[in-house]
Computed example of a mutant assay.
Amino acid sequence: MAMGKSVAAEAWVAERTGKPSEVLVRRAFEVREPGPNEVRLVNEAFSLNFNDIDCIYGRYATVPVSPPFVPGMEAVGVVEAAGPGAEDLIGTRVVGIPTGALGGYSTHVVCPVSMTLLVPEHVAGETAAAMHYPFHLSWLGLYERGKLQRDETLLVTAAAGGVGSAAVQLGRLAGARVIALAGGPEKAEVCRELGADLAIDYRAEGWVEKVNEFTGGDGVDVAFDLVGGQVTTDIFRTMGFGGRHLIAGYSSGIEQEHNASFDPWRMVYGNFSLVGVAHLYSDDPVAQWRRTGTRPTLRSHGIKVHADILRLLDEGKIAPVIGRRVDFADLPDAIDALEARNTHGKVVVGNLPAV
Rank of each mutant, 00 (worst) to 15 (best):
S6P: 13
A8F: 15
E10G: 04
W12R: 02
W12V: 01
K19T: 11
R26G: 04
R27I: 10
R27Y: 10
A28R: 15
A28P: 08
R32M: 13
P34D: 03
E38C: 08
R40Y: 01
A45V: 05
L48A: 04
A61E: 11
P64K: 09
P67K: 01
G72T: 00
G72S: 07
A82N: 01
A82M: 08
E87L: 09
G91T: 12
L102Q: 12
G103F: 10
G104P: 02
S106V: 03
T107Y: 04
V109S: 02
V109F: 06
V110D: 08
V110P: 06
V110H: 06
P112H: 09
M115Y: 09
L117N: 01
E121W: 10
H122R: 14
E126T: 03
A130R: 00
M131H: 05
H136I: 12
G141P: 00
Y143A: 12
R150G: 08
R150S: 13
L155V: 08
T157S: 12
A159E: 04
G175Y: 13
A176L: 06
L181W: 01
P185D: 11
E193P: 03
L194I: 07
L198R: 02
I200R: 03
I200L: 10
Y202L: 07
E205Q: 14
G206Q: 13
W207K: 09
N212C: 03
E213D: 15
F214E: 13
G217K: 09
G229E: 08
G229S: 13
I235W: 06
F236V: 06
T238F: 09
G242I: 07
A248L: 06
A248S: 11
G253M: 08
G253Y: 07
I254M: 10
P264H: 14
P264W: 13
V268T: 14
V268Q: 15
N271Q: 15
L274Y: 07
V277N: 02
H279A: 15
R290L: 13
T294H: 15
K304Q: 14
K304Y: 10
V305L: 03
I309G: 00
I309S: 00
L310C: 12
G316Y: 04
P320K: 00
V321D: 00
R324F: 00
D327Y: 03
F328C: 05
D330W: 07
D333K: 03
D333E: 12
I335K: 00
I335T: 09
D336T: 07
A337Y: 03
R341W: 12
N342P: 11
N342C: 15
H344T: 07
V347R: 00
V348P: 00
V349F: 01
L352I: 00
P353K: 05
P353L: 07
